[in-house]
Amino acid sequence: MRSAVRELRQANGLSQEALARALGVSRQTINAIETGRYDPSLRLAVHLARHFGRTVEEMFDVDTE
């Protein structure tokens, strides 16, 4: 699934490590979400969206694999 995580993270000047720490997940999980290898749970998707002040639909494109 494609996401806007990388764009928003970079726009906010955050490293993968810093975002991972803020969300309580590993850096590899952030990397896997950004590269589309891992679809986060609804809980993590909501936390990601809240972190950037966006909606889940703005963060994730569910129509792409």
Binding site: G24, V25, S26, Q28, T29, P40, S41, R43
Partner: peptide, 13 residues
């Protein structure tokens, strides 16, 4: 390393 050691950090692990 974490998964093989049964030391899960998050939902992906």
């Amino acid at each position: 390393t974490r998964v093989n050691a049964i030391e899960y950090r998050d939902e992906r692990d």
